[in-house]
Design a protein around this nucleic acid. Structure first.
Length: 876
RNA sequence: GCCCGCGUGGUGGAAUGGUAGACACAGGGGACUUAAAAUCCCUCGGCUGAAAGGCCAUGCCGGUUCAAAUCCGGCCGCGGGCACCA
């Protein structure tokens, strides 16, 4: 064996895997199947370390499952529609399609050297007509199933560019290009009826036992089931047709603390009042700014008293003013509320600002009805004393009070208990070019008509220009013109395209039959679904996963997925980001200037870490005064400020190009490093020293393999039993680490095992068996070096296809255990006892221990707790 | 603003109610070398002590428990999401 040279061995083994078709997924009824999927990338053009980490995790799982005898599906594709392609076309010219496919080719070329066990024959891009044509077919099926409808909804409108903006394109309430203040404007849009499934999407979360608890909780909160009271206020002085004002509240128990009613600026009543120029101006003011919840809820709370009054349902003589307020959302409840300032902080702020009364309804049990400095909002499960209650006991929990208040309203006929969800229907219309065209036709005679399936795919026209803001499909001369599939008359195509979340809501199903001329093939879907392990970023915890769960149900309803696939992801793992520290200096104006990691030099001088701009030789022998040295560097503008690690981003230049790392150390080193050190669900900080350490370790394993290879065949050693035990332990720990998504722990075990093996003095066959096992255990993480060691040490066939080792259970248990002894919870001694020793005997030995006697100093023992195999605690 | 996380040595982390700091990085000391690199060995939370040992220590404050990094309550700091970023 020669020097460890990844640039030679890595391409060689990748070719060998290709030739053997090792990773081609095949339906094999004789084997259990395993479908592992990483969230597919957006083709930005460059892979980054986050991709490397994500795909390496999936690869570790896929390779382990393959070795464990599963028929594995591990595909890859491209989430290829979206705004960046159009932005690139606007900024640099060119066409979104060319830009996207060029990026896909570039990224694929960058991914290949990683040696991932991907079945590339199933590759797909969502911008392929082959893919989005099937999506259009499903859209039509969903229309027929009643899951699609149109309604008016608000968008961010840029009044200068005359175009709709994404939330991302609204910066501080202004359009990102024009700088104009954005308005909220209504547009007729396409919607999926995800709300039909609110209850089911919520209750089915309980069955997702292999999902992170936090993701399930976030989804549950997002769906937001609430029980409340809906009732109508009788109005006084309202325009015709507004005799009652319907409101919904989750706190009907606070009805006696009401001090005003408030409606959204988009409420029909507010619109009816727009004849009044003052109200029109106020409503226009409310519509300024973007549509995002963050912007609306952090905006200053403003209101306008309409002069209209409503009668309190429990006392017709008690009238409340009706305000229009900017923090009331038309999308939730009825778009109208009653305000109870004493028990809602937002209402409290509003009431304080506009000098409205603040009356407490309840107080902490035992507390006085004191004046409030802020809203008193205890947990609903807490017992409080009602000072202005009207139903139920004086002292009760909030939950009890809500229930009794609803019962009271229903008994007296002024309101109804209603269950509502926060989840809104999914608006899928986008006024953009680079997306899946909505396959619908507007006919003067027939109205809105779905396109005939025979005409699918409705392909995007290529001849478009991006020199004017807005959707090029709207101004395309011929694409819009078509004939009505129903009556044959001249008609116009829908020019809205679909939200890119639609594309990513079913790609996992398409991978089971990526070339089919129907969206799916049931036989394939039935074999491969569900995804056994889905891996991706925590940033997708809500939207992408919720939409996918809905879409799988819709696909089942329309006959494209079997019933078992309505929850498409059996297990979910959300991985952390790859971060890097940021290197910054300042220019003459004091503005920050960022530097790439490769453009700085890091010195470790004593316990100081000094970062210097440029590539300079070590200063240690040039200076003996570190502080003076730092001052000198600072004066010359060479001293670099180190900002703590953050997600890698181009703007901060804290990026490391995976291909540079592969060129310097090989893919195995990159893979090993991103899997080591940090637990996969947490962020991992990329450090140059960490990558180098990984490379050094692989070199050590390589030379160890060489040394074992050169051992005389008849060498005898006394360490056979110890090494066999260490090997069994490594198998056990690495297997558990991988299966439990604790790759960092699996790697720590592999370090320990390699160190043990390097020091072991065992017979040649035992040494060879151990190094082959090491190679096999390393192979999910570092597949290339593993193959080389495997081949060199006489492994049969490809390491990638060799079965996963099994640990001999007899070698995993130790005969004696070391038990620490605590006295009053502090560790004072330890004893070694046979593993199966009965508790009374352990107690006897513990109490007879010299150190225990010394620490007890004659105090009587009150209690002794023995946790078998773990610890002894003596309470004195 | 609302929802959800996270916080342990100089650093990444291990320990998921039972010996805090596995494994690794950085640092310190040594071997080899003319020298350096590479490699190998030792050491490595703080205070105290000649040593044995003792005391302190898991963001901060309080609680539950024989026992808390771990469970509960409050606070501080950081991160993710908020429906047209993907």
């Amino acid at each position: 064996m020669s020097r460890y040279d990844p640039s030679v061995i890595e391409p060689r083994w990748q070719e060998a895997w290709d030739k053997a078709g090792a990773f081609t997924a095949r339906r094999d009824p004789a084997k259990p199947k395993y479908y592992v999927l990483e969230m597919f990338p957006y083709p930005s053009g460059r892979i980054h370390m986050g991709h490397v980490r994500n795909y390496t995790m999936g690869d570790v799982v896929a390779r382990t499952k393959l070795a464990q005898g599963y028929s594995v599906l591990h595909p890859m594709g491209w989430d290829a529609f979206g705004m960046p392609a159009e932005n690139a076309a606007m900024e640099r010219g060119g066409h979104p399609k060319d830009w996207t496919y060029g990026n896909i080719a570039d990224m694929k070329a960058q991914m290949k050297p990683l040696g991932l066990s991907i079945d590339w024959s199933r590759e797909l891009a969502t911008c392929d007509p082959e893919y989005y044509g099937q999506q259009q077919a499903m859209f039509i099926d969903m229309m027929e199933a009643g899951l699609v409808y149109r309604k008016a909804a608000v968008v961010n409108w840029d009044p200068v560019d005359m175009t709709v903006l994404a939330n991302e394109q609204v910066i501080d309430g202004k359009g990102w290009r024009s700088g104009a203040v954005v308005e909220r404007r209504e547009l007729t849009q396409w919607f999926f009826k995800i709300s039909d499934y609110s209850e089911e999407l919520l209750s089915a979360l309980d069955g997702l036992t292999h999902w992170p608890e936090k993701v399930r909780l976030m989804q549950a909160n997002w769906i937001g089931k609430s029980r409340g009271l809906q009732f109508g206020f009788k109005t006084v002085g309202a325009p015709a047709g507004f005799d009652t004002l319907e409101v919904y509240t989750t706190r009907p128990d606070t009805l006696m603390g009401a001090s005003f009613a408030a409606i959204s600026a988009d409420h029909p009543l507010a619109r009816a009042l727009e004849g009044d120029p003052k109200i029109a101006a106020f409503v226009a003011e409310c519509r300024r700014g973007g549509t995002s919840a963050e912007e609306i809820e952090t905006a200053e709370k403003i209101g306008y008293d309409t002069g209209i009054r409503v009668q309190h349902p429990l006392d017709p003589n008690w009238e409340l003013p009706v305000w229009i307020a900017n923090f009331i959302l038309m999308d939730y409840g009825t778009g109208a509320i009653f305000g109870c300032p004493a028990h809602d902080q937002r209402d409290f702020d509003f009431a304080t600002k506009y000098r409205l009364p603040i009356k407490a309804v309840f107080a902490a049990d035992g507390a006085e009805d004191a004046a409030l400095a802020e809203a008193y909002v205890p947990m609903k499960s807490e017992r409080v004393r009602y000072v202005r209650g009207f139903a139920g006991a004086e002292v009760q929990t909030g939950d009890e009070a809500v229930a009794t208040a609803i019962a009271h309203a229903e008994t007296h006929g002024y309101g109804t208990g209603v269950t509502k969800f926060r989840l809104r229907d999914w608006g899928v219309s986008r006024q953009r070019y680079w997306g899946c065209p909505i396959p619908v036709i507007h006919c003067a005679g027939c109205g809105v008509v779905p396109e005939a399936k025979a005409n699918l795919p409705i392909e995007l026209p290529y001849d478009v220009s991006f020199d004017v803001p807005g959707n090029p499909l709207d101004r395309h001369p011929t694409w819009r013109d078509c004939t009505c599939p129903k009556c044959g008359a001249a008609a116009r195509r829908e020019t809205d395209t679909m939200d890119t979340f639609v594309d990513s809501s079913w790609y996992y199903a398409r991978f089971t039959a990526p070339r089919a001329t129907t969206p799916t093939v049931l036989e394939d879907a039935d074999y491969w679904m569900n995804v056994d392990q889905y891996i991706g970023g925590i940033e997708h915890a809500i939207l992408h996963l919720l939409y996918s769960r809905f879409f799988a149900r819709a696909m089942h309803k329309t006959g494209h997925l079997p019933a078992k696939a309505i929850e498409p992801f059996n297990a979910l793992f959300t991985q952390g980001m790859v971060t890097h520290e940021i290197y910054m200096t300042r220019d003459a104006q004091g503005r920050p200037v960022y530097h790439l990691p490769e453009d700085v030099t890091v010195f470790n001088v004593a316990d100081r870490r000094i970062v210097v701009k440029g590539n300079v030789p070590p200063p240690v022998d040039m200076i003996d005064d570190v502080d003076a040295f730092i001052r000198a560097l600072s004066d010359e503008g060479l001293l670099v400020e180190v900002i703590p690690s953050a997600k890698m981003s181009k703007s901060k230049k804290n990026v490391v190009d995976p291909n540079d790392i592969i060129a310097a150390y090989g893919a195995d080193t990159a893979r090993w490093f991103v899997m080591s050190d940090s637990p996969p669900e947490r962020d991992v900080e990329w450090t140059a020293s960490g990558a180098e350490a990984a490379f050094k370790h692989l070199n050590r394993v390589w030379t160890l393999c060489d040394r074992i290879g050169q051992m005389p065949a008849d060498h005898q050693g006394e360490g056979d039993n110890d090494l066999a035990r260490a090997t069994a332990k490594a198998i056990d720990e690495v297997t558990k680490g991988i299966e439990g998504f604790a790759f960092n722990k699996a790697i720590a075990s592999l370090y320990a095992f390699a160190n043990t093996l390097a020091k072991a003095n065992a017979s040649t066959p035992v040494m060879k068996e151990a190094i082959r096992t090491l190679a096999k255990l390393m192979s999910p993480m570092t597949p290339h070096i593993a193959e080389d060691i495997w081949a060199y040490q006489g492994g049969i066939g490809l390491c990638a296809e060799a079965p996963w080792p099994k640990a001999d259970p007899a070698l995993l248990v130790d005969d004696t255990v070391t038990l620490p002894i605590q006295i009053n919870g502090k560790r004072r001694a330890e004893i070694s006892v046979p593993k199966d020793m009965p508790i009374p005997e352990v107690e006897k030995i513990a109490l007879a221990d010299e150190a225990v006697i010394r620490f007890l100093a004659g105090q009587p023992v009150k209690k002794i707790i023995v946790v078998p195999g773990r610890i002894i605690n003596v309470v004195a």
